[in-house]
Every structure is written in structure tokens, then in C-alpha cells.
Design a binder for these strands. Sequence first.
RNA 1: GCUCAAGUGGCGGAAUUGGUAGACGCGCUGGAUUCAAAAUCCAGUUCUUUCGGGAGUGUGGGUUCGAUUCCCACCUUGAGUACCA
Length: 941
Amino acid sequence: MSNYHFNAIEAKWQKYWAEHKTFQAENTSEKPKYYVLDMFPYPSGAGLHVGHPLGYIASDIYARYKRHQGFNVLHPQGYDSFGLPAEQYAIQTGQHPRKTTEENIARYREQLDKIGFSFDWSREVRTSDPHYYKWTQWIFMQLFDSWYDKASDKARAISELITIFSEEGSGQVKAACDTTVRKFTAQEWNSFSEAIQQKELLKYRLTYLAETEVNWCPELGTVLANDEIVNGVSERGGYPVVRKRMKQWSMRITAYAQRLLDGLESIDWPQPLKDAQTNWIGRSKGASVIFKVKDHNENIEVFTTRPDTIYGVSFMTLAPEHELVPRITSEAQKQAVQDYIEATSKRSERERMADVKTISGVFTGAYVTHPFSGEDIPVWIGDYVLAGYGTGAVMSVPCGDQRDYDFATHFGIPIPNIFKDVDISEEAFSDKENTILTNSDFLNDLSYAEATQRVIEALEKKGAGEGKINYRLRDAVFSRQRYWGEPFPVYYKNGLPQLIDEKHLPLTLPEVEKYLPTEDGEPPLGRAEVWAWDENAGAVVSNDRIDHKTVFPLELNTMPGWAGSSCYMFRYMDPRNDDALASQEAMDYWKCVDLYVGGSEHATGHLLYSRFWVKFLYDRGVLPVQEPFKKLINQGMILGESAYVYRIEGENTFISKGKYSGEKIQPIHADVSFVNLQNELDIEAFKAWRPEFSDADFITEEDGAFKVSREVEKMSKSKYNVVNPDDICAQYGADTLRMYEMFLGPLEQAKPWNTAGITGVHGFLKKLWKLYHSAAGDTFYVSDEQASKESLKTLHKTIKKVQEDIENFSFNTSVSTFMIAVNELTAQQCTSREILEPILGLISPYAPHIAEELWQRLGHGKSISTAPFPTFEASYLVESTKEYPISFNGKMRFTLELPLDLSKDAIEAAVMSHEKTAHYLEGRSPKKVIVVPGKIVNIVG
RNA sequence: GCUCAAGUGGCGGAAUUGGUAGACGCGCUGGAUUCAAAAUCCAGUUCUUUCGGGAGUGUGGGUUCGAUUCCCACCUUGAGUACCA
């Protein structure tokens, strides 16, 4: 009988830690600081499943380890509490999303507390809390008040831009801005009306309002960012997405493309994640080329990575949405072009993606002039050209690009060959490393690199283009047509956006009766009765009083989910500060997150936006760092093992997996709680689950069991494969859950949840308990005798291994190490205090409750979390002799035990003079003896 | 298509400046204890074998005295991205 009463122990210490504020971090300390952060959760209605805590356990182990090592550790937790599910629920039930969110948070907190995390809850933040989103709104205002100066490569105040405009005009300004900016002198600027000036400034601001092509999801009634779309459908719900032009707030993240790329080199992140960001930013080097449209006063600018192939251009292709299309289309082609554009715009994003094989396009009737040869080049429209990339127009070189080649072949456009000794009769030749140009005038006989340089020089001389770097990264759409998000601190005066005064922040969400869009298609905030801005009173006033003189309409959109999560890591540093995002002292002390743990699915969303905002706030002097997360670890997802039962189609009969022989069946999810480890279904429970199953028939195996088939899938409520950590805690305890989740496999790897092995880990904790308790009762026993040499060796090798494991985030292997240690100590009958104390220090990060209990039983007054991490001494690990495996020609034959202090030569001599060696050599003389110090001896015969 | 990651027993997985492959756990087999079960403890468990050994880390090559580890090609799986000019 084990007396390891984990439930009582865990409840006791969780209460103790909370009451003694054991894990509260101070903003000043003699100790060095360490900041460990988890990606904060969205509190969903389904509660936590066993997959959620995986990363939290890993970061908690590391945080506790760092505390043992004498660091002042900041390890906070909070909630990303704005979001769509609470709003969807509100639409269905009318319950305020705030209420739903609060209930979910309470449940999350209860579940998290049971696992024994060392979070400093006094610093909790919630993105939907007005005290928090005040600062989200404040950051938005800073972005609105800034522009990006390419000359100094940083964001600057918009007031400085106004000074430049009014003193020098726009001539010298190099900014990241809209392509539609005007050129003007200082005089002209000063003569502009206020409205025109504001309109012009909007083109420079880092957050700006613009008519843009967005991803509209009609089902959700909102726009989505690129990273919120998966395979052409919405990430949440899987609804279709279409392209639509709308006036939206955007973030000028493209201004930071190069710095976001460069910054990756300075941070310790997993390479796959860095690669994902690199690909998403998509830097490509090439040239922009300007083609003059014949008989029109228009230019078509294209971006190309192959300016060297300029003599291979045989047509131009514009995206159907290209703005020049209506202006240059000839009278004869007008109808055809119109029909084509209409046909393509009807296709959804998904259709277009699925159907990349079909070649379609139409001739505009217009021609451009080749910048060097002066030849006429026909201008086509094709939907293989994307409006959103480059300039939405390409110079088509069919001999060097397969898509151009296919297009040309399809429409019978000539394919001139400009590659020497290359056959292009079957396909395009796109290898740029092995090209020699021909039929290319001044580029003949040049390679890709040489020709590219020459063309760019020539283009720049002519004013027909320039060398250019293009990025795939798009500005991020920042408006959402939702209720449950941060309101913009913006009102509209004469149709132009104005910021409310900072002293009025936060601008809190108004109450609405329904959470749906209004009848005339406005976002839900349009339903608010009190949602207008009085410039004099500086308050939100009734909607009816909007007079457009002193009372103005407020912005009706809200901010997207990533707004609240982009800077939360700084808010934890000083979460109750109402005067600043965080005090300067707090930010200077904590600086940035030292270790960030979370899923890789945020690679091109949160992690990119967050880096962007931090760089921006650094530029504006708000933050002391340029990168928020110094080191990042991606925990892998824990998957569920779904259970399927087979129902014979058209009948209410279920057939066991072993009895299935090709009948037409329909697999149905059964709740995994009805299935045991042998994959046998509890038929009675299943029948009681759903009324339609209550009178079903079951074809079972011979022994009467009904077998289900299992499949590894994402853990989700709808798949009935969710395992609740509460159940595991109740049955085995939080310490077992923590250690088992680590034991499942490498942290970064995705792995299915399977309780099969949990008894092994649980058994280890019982063994540890038993080692220090009398066989009969609950009496704690520890001896004060000196530990044996053997036990000291066990202890010190364990310290060494566990420390290495923690620092390498190989938490799975240290669980094994603990098991070995306890098995050895049990065999040695070691109950020495000298061994137990340091062992507890090692185990405490993994299994804090049992470690704390035994620690206190040893008579300590303070929590074990304040104890120093034990250090190992190499001298305990050293032995006086060592076994040397001897191999012949690489094959192991026997081992020799030799003194430890022998030199390389002495080992060689000892090996060669040994009788066993002589036996294997059988009279041959060895060519070579290889001694690898301390490891192995190899004789090559 | 492109980019990245990973392929080791019945299973999860150990082992990297190249040095006795399969640690640890699960499962399985046998034993002890028990009236019995649970729990616990002990032993065994890569495959093969004529019991000497032989083969073996996705496949085929290469480097090396020696390769799970390094190099090349290929296959498979997973993830991301996708008409990016």
C-alpha cells in the first residue's frame, strides 16, 4: 500500500504557494533577471485539454530551474480574451461576450491551478480589459502619428514630416508610403487646404485608411488577414473567402520588411520558424522596368527577377484587376475584356487556387514599346498574374518562364529563343545559372549575372527602370467588422480620420443589443445607441446627436485578434500602470522575454506582427529593445486518438472492427472515454450517449467485445477525442501529469496522447515516496548517516545529466534519468539526507508538489523553490579503472580493464602485450593500433 | 512545384566534436507474493541461428580502422507555402 496521497499533497502546496505569494516577481532585485513566457491562451468554452499544458509545463520547469539557480524570474500568465468564438456564441444566445469570456477564464484558471504552475498571477493581463486595451489603442495612435523614413531607416513622428513638407516640400523625402503620393514644393504644401494635407499625410502614416482588396468572409461577416486563411477558406470555421474592395485600416508592415528579415539573425529561434518568416517576407532581387504604352500617355511598370531576359519579351500580361486595363483597352477588344474580367471576378479564391492548370486570358488591343529594341509588344490580361504581387503586371518571357511559355503556346504568341544552345521546343528554360544569352543585342554572350548588371545600368541611364528589391509581404489589414475587439480611438470629421485625445483613453466598447452587423451592412458597433464623439466634451455621446460640427461618428470597425497580443509581453512588466505601457524602470530591468514557448502555428501571424510593433516602438523610443523574444521554443501539438465505430450504411447496426469485411460502412466518432486500452467499446455507455444509438444492434467479436478503430487527429470537441487534464490529475496527480507529458517525447514533436505509459511515471513517484517512508505506515524516514560512495555517484551523475537536459530542453530524457536514480538508490537502500536533499532540488521543477512535501518533511521552513540547484562534482564520477573495448578491424571482440591514468602509448602497449590480443592476432602483425582516449582501442590487422 | 523537418524493436522513444545501437517507459513472457485479484518485487524481451556466430538504425552508393551520426542520390511521411514574375 502506497501512502503517496498526491491529491492531498497537491492541494496543500498549491494553497501554500498562493497564500505565500511564492512566485511573485519583483521589479528590482540584486539577482540577475530571467523572463520566461508562454503564449497566452484564448479562453475557449471547451476548457483546457491535455495538449494545452504541454508548453506551460516545459516553461514552468525552466522557470523553476532558473529560480533554483538564483535568478529573479518573471513568469506571468494571462488571457488573449478578445475573439470570435465568444462573439459567435453571443450572436446565437444573446449572452454578452464579456460574460462568456469571464466564465471561460474562471474555468481555465481552475484547471491551470490544478497543475501547479509557478505563475505570478498578480501580473495577469486580459486583452479585453479596458485597462489593458487602453495601451493597445495607445500603440495604434503612435502608429497613426508616425511615418517611416527610409533615409534614416526608422519610424519618425508625423509632425517631423509636416515640418519637412512645409519647409522643403516632398522632393527629398524618402518614405515608405502609398504609390499615389504627390510631389510638391513647400509653397504648394502650405497652400493646400487642411483636408488635402490630411489626405496626403494618410498616405505616409504607419497605419492608414485605404481602399484595398481584402479577403472577405461572407459567412463570418468580416475580413481576414492572409494568415487567417488556410487553403483558401477561413481558419476558423472553414468558410469560403472572396476578394472584395473595401476601405480598411492597414498596418504598413512592409516598411519593416528588411529589418524583420535582418533581425532574425540576432535571435535564437528554431530554424524552421525563421525559414517560415523568411519565406513569408519573400525578398526577391531584380529590377523594375517601365514600358511605354503605345498611343496612350501611360506607362506599365513591371517587376522582374530576370531583367537579363529582356530581349525575350514577346508580350505583357496584366492582372485582371490592374488599374490601367480600362484605360488602354482598344474599342475592338472592349467587350471581350469586360467579359473576361467579369468571369474571373466571379471565381472564388479557392476555385482560382484549385484550378491553376486552365490557361485563360484576353488581348487588350494595346501595345507597349520595348525599351531597347523599340518593337511593339502586345498587352494581354491573364489571371495567372496576381494583382497583389509586384506591380500586378509582368513582362512575359515565354522562353524563360514556364507560365509565360504555356500562355504563349495556348494563344499562339511567338516564343523567341534568347538562350544559346538551348532547346525550347518542349518547355521553357528557367535555369539562370547556366545561361548564355543570344539574340539579345548588347547582352549577347553574357551570363545571367553579367547581363543583369548591364541591363539595370542601361535601364537607369534611360530612365526606363532600376534595380529593385521586391517583397512578397503585404501590408496587414487591421479592421475587423466585429463587436468583440478593441475599438479604434478614431472618429471621422469631413470623412477624414481623427484621433481622439490621448487623455480620453481607453475608449471602451459600447453596449449593443445584438451582435450581428446592422441591417444596412455596417459592423455591429453601428447598433450602439451611444457611440459618437463630442470634440468639446470629449466623450462618447448619443448617436442621434451627430451634427458633423462638434459631434462626429466614431469608427465602427474593431481591431483584429493580433492587436492585443503584439505587445502584451511588455505589459506584464508593469501591468497595473495607468500612465504608461510599462514604466521605464520596469522595461529597462526586464528588457525582453528570454524564453518564449508556444506553437509554431503563429510563425507568420503573431510572431511577425509582434516583432513589427516592437521594432516600431523601439524607433519611437518607447521600448529599449528591437526584438521581443530572445529565445523561442515551439512545443509540438498533442494529438488525440479518436475512436471510430463502423455503422453499416442505411442500417442502425454497428460492426466491430475485426468483423468488418468490406461492407458499405459509415465511420462515426465515438467518445474516447467509452473505449479502453484494448480498443474495446463500452456498448452500454455508447447506447446511452445518443438516443438514436439506444436501440442499435452490435456485431461483436467472438468473445463479445466490440472493437473500435483508432485514428490520430487533432484534439477537438467535435471529434470526441478530448482528454481533460483534470481527470488525469484526479487519478494520478499533477506531478504525474507534468512528468508524463514531458516523458511522451521530444518537446518540439507532435505526438498522440496515449495514457498507456502513464503508470510507469506514476510508479516512479510512488517509488520515490516509498524510499523515504516506512513500509507499514506514513512515517517519514531519512537517515543522517554518510552516503555511500555508490550513492554519491548516483547523485552526481544525475545532477550532471538533469542539468544538461534542462539546458537543452530535453525534458523527456531527464525523466528517464530520475527513474534510473531512484531505482539505483532503492537497490542501494540509500535513505541518506545527504542524497535526498539535492535529489529533491532536481525533481522540484518537474514534480514540484512531491518535492515540496518531502522537503518540508526534512524540516525546512521555506519553500523548496528558494533552494539552490545542486551542483555536481566530477570527482564522484571518476573511477580508478576503465573498461576498454578492443576491436579488430572495427569489430568488437573483448574488453580490458586498465588503470585510468595510462597514457595513449601505455594503453597501446598494454593492449598489444595482452594474451587475448595475441589470440585474436593469430600470428599476424598489426598495421596500426588506434587509441581514442578514454573510449576505445581499435587494432587494424 | 518550392521550403523545411523527420524515418531506429510490438509501441513511445534513448544514443551527435563519428567509438560496445536499442537507455528509460509501455507491452509481452516467466517467476515470487496472494485463497484470488489489485498492488508490489525479481528475471527475460531487435531479428536470426546448427548457440560458434550472423544480420541490423527508410533504400542505394561514398568517406573512414570504425557511420544511427558526415557526404551524394533516391524513396516515404509530416509541416508550411503556393500561378510570387
